[in-house]
Design a protein around this nucleic acid. Structure first.
Lengths: 217, 217
DNA sequence: ACCTGAACACCGTTCAAGT
DNA sequence: ACCTGAACACCGTTCAAGT
């Protein structure tokens, strides 16, 4: 759309970077992380296999960008769902968690990239740190509202958020990576697992009969 | 470069397979999963790069074997620790969890292989399923003893075990993959995180003052 | 400024052939 | 039965060179 020599086919509006990222995400979604190759992304974008290096320092930088996009997507989904329950902190918390789990289940390859150990070689970009913080903050806000409304006991919100994130992330990873299909939990479906685990987080495991009506749902 | 001058017949007591696995584990421990290459493992074992295919169908089979070894190691460590607290179910449960976390922290690359998404391509070997089940069973037994002793409330043990595993696995992964270093949790050390999270699992998040003396530790 | 093509040093895997 | 070497089709990355 800008002035470019028409003979030169610049399909990407000068935005080869965005086009590469889009195609990379498609590869991840459809064929998994191991199918993502700089050369393949370039191929699908109709560009030589060295062109990507103009825009991404290396393969890890491309994965980093994919992870950023992932965190931005979840945080957006969570925010949308939370808005559906104005003034109902516990429902918001629940909706937030469900949105997270839904995203992870429906985009497992992408989710894996977001938390991928592949990035542990390089330190994450500032953009990635920022996007990650934003999604953690969403969780923190939900918990804070619950606490203020008296649904959640007094205590450090950050550590409560960490507990919540750990549990959800852990279960999601176990499911995604196929560790709870046959590991002795045959009878339970994923939805049921999620409900049970959420309840255990909320109520705890210790011997105690909670006042009726406190349980979520 | 010369060839091996010795009588290199059955250099490995006919156990090239074990030698390859041992070297593969060393590579993983010392340089991470991405450094593990069939060719490199062969190189360190002093064998041609195609020899491993006599013993492992492909690279995933080698990773699978490494994962089996990992689960066997954790289950062994957990069993040892549990034995140190005869007749004290809650302490056993705690010791079991600590042993798990310790293993994951000290052998993070190996731990990642055990849960690695790299295996999700192939279905896991029967040996892997078995080793995994054994470690889940260890957890289940701890919980069962706690429940019988009245430390843990009535309820389905399997789903409680799943909740516990999810939380511990989740936190371990977040730590290992560097997601809780700067994500807004600066002040907490790993040990403290673990304690807080464990307590949240045990007591829950809901508004309620537990009877004194019920908390672990 | 942005892209290309050749080149390099690696992979995983297969296969005919050696002992 | 177990191992080797050459070969194939891929990678990620660099670099001189083109427009």
């Amino acid at each position: 759309m800008q002035r470019k020599p028409k003979t030169n086919r610049t399909y990407h509006h000068g935005d080869l970077k965005a086009a590469l990222l889009k195609n990379a995400l498609e590869i991840i979604e459809r064929e998994g992380v191991q199918a993502l190759t700089i050369r393949e992304a370039a191929r699908r974008t109709g560009v030589s296999h060295t062109a990507p290096y103009r825009h991404f320092k290396n393969k890890n930088a491309l994965l980093d960008a994919a992870a950023v996009e992932g965190f931005e997507l979840v945080v957006q989904r969570m925010a949308e769902r939370v808005q559906e329950y104005p003034g109902q902190p516990l429902q918001q918390f629940r909706a937030c968690g469900l949105a997270y789990i839904e995203f992870a289940a429906n985009h497992s390859a992408h989710y894996r990239v977001m938390f991928g150990s592949g990035l542990s070689e390089m330190q994450p970009s500032p953009e990635l740190d920022q996007a990650k913080s934003a999604s953690f903050k969403q969780l923190l806000d939900c918990l804070k509202n619950c606490q203020e409304a008296g649904f959640i006991r007094a205590g450090d919100l950050k550590s409560m958020a960490l507990s919540t994130w750990s549990m959800v992330h852990g279960l999601v990873m176990l499911i995604i990576d196929g560790h709870v299909g046959r590991a002795g939990l045959d009878a339970m479906g994923q939805a049921e697992m999620m409900m049970q685990v959420t309840e255990h987080l909320y109520l705890g495991l210790h011997e105690f009969s909670p006042p009726a009506g406190l349980a979520i749902k």
